[in-house]
């Protein structure tokens, strides 16, 4: 195990960013990815450990103009119990509900889920469907700098993101979906609890006269990064919901995913699952409210 020479648990974001910029640092949120990765030797801690957990501005879910702002430290439990999200962004709540176990949900943060950058990260898929953007902060040497990035541009590969050295994810924002927006998330695992997704799918759009418009589709665990299903979305967008559109969407999905075979499933099985789940989600979206 690597040697940690500096530790800080600041209350201010500025102080945290300064500490993270000073020397190579590991940032700590809930620790649910970090602790097992360190213990298994998959990853070593940097010489400096910066614990974000006492930074109040990184907490909380709130309305922000015509959008919603999730502080990076928002836990999965907080998402699950939030009335505004339950009402207007149920697809995110659905993913929170299928996340690990109660104890894990109490610890795991949304920021950690994104920054860990697993292709199977369960909150990433609904946030892609919701068109989320990230607020990233860093210390320039004299002040705190903020930049914004669409979530879909954040991921580089398994475990790697566009976060610069010392950069901290402060918040996730997405526009509050209009009342005619419908979306669904489905994850497939071998048991309902405590299972990493073999694959996952999210589909959302605005319902207009038997069609879905402004469609967004995202796939988990079928590419090196969480994948935006643009071709699948195009196959759905504006077409009457029903068997023909479903068939077109299913074949677009199979064509654009890039699954691998690993301990959880073969590439062939993942492709089968993606097609089945895509068809089921479209059926659910079609029948919702009828």
């Amino acid at each position: 195990m690597a040697r940690v020479e500096h530790y800080a648990a600041p209350r201010g974001l500025k102080e945290a960013a300064r500490r993270a910029a000073e020397r190579p640092a590991t940032v700590l949120a809930g620790g649910t990815d970090l602790m097992p990765q360190i213990r298994s030797g998959k990853r070593a801690l940097a010489p400096s450990l910066v614990n974000l957990r006492r930074i109040a501005v990184l907490r909380g879910i709130r309305r922000d103009g015509d959008g919603v702002r999730l502080g990076a430290l928002t836990t999965v439990t907080e998402i699950l119990g939030h009335p505004l999200l339950r009402q207007r962004a149920a697809v995110l709540v659905e993913a929170a509900d299928h996340f690990a176990s109660v104890q894990l949900r109490n610890m795991a943060t949304v920021g950690g889920n994104l920054c860990n950058a697993s292709p199977a990260g369960d909150l990433i898929i609904p946030l892609l469907v919701l068109g989320a953007r990230l607020e990233l902060v860093s210390w320039t040497g004299t002040e705190l700098a903020t930049r914004e990035l669409p979530l879909e541009d954040f991921f580089v590969g398994p475990g790697t993101t566009r976060l610069g050295p010392g950069e901290i994810l402060a918040a996730i924002r997405f526009p509050l979906p209009p009342p005619d927006f419908v979306a669904r998330f489905r994850k497939f695992g071998t048991r309902p609890a405590l299972d990493i997704s073999v694959v996952s799918v999210g589909i959302g759009g605005r319902r207009r006269n038997g069609t879905l418009e402004q469609v967004r589709v995202a796939f988990g665990a079928v590419a090196p990064v969480p994948l935006c299903g643009r071709r699948t979305a195009a196959a759905i967008d504006g077409h009457p919901l029903g068997p023909d559109t479903t068939a077109a969407a299913v074949s677009a999905a199979a064509a654009e995913i890039r699954p691998i075979s690993d301990v959880r499933a073969s590439a062939w099985y993942r492709t089968e699952l993606i097609q089945i789940l895509t068809a089921r989600l479209l059926r659910d979206v079609h029948h919702e409210g009828h």
């Binding site: 530790y7 620790g31 602790m35 439990t77 109660v102 109490n106």
Partner: peptide, 15 residues
């Protein structure tokens, strides 16, 4: 008051 897995928690975070 919140249930957590203590094996995943950093001890320093108990502060």
């Amino acid at each position: 008051g919140t249930a957590v897995n203590s094996c995943l928690m950093f001890a320093v975070d108990c502060d």
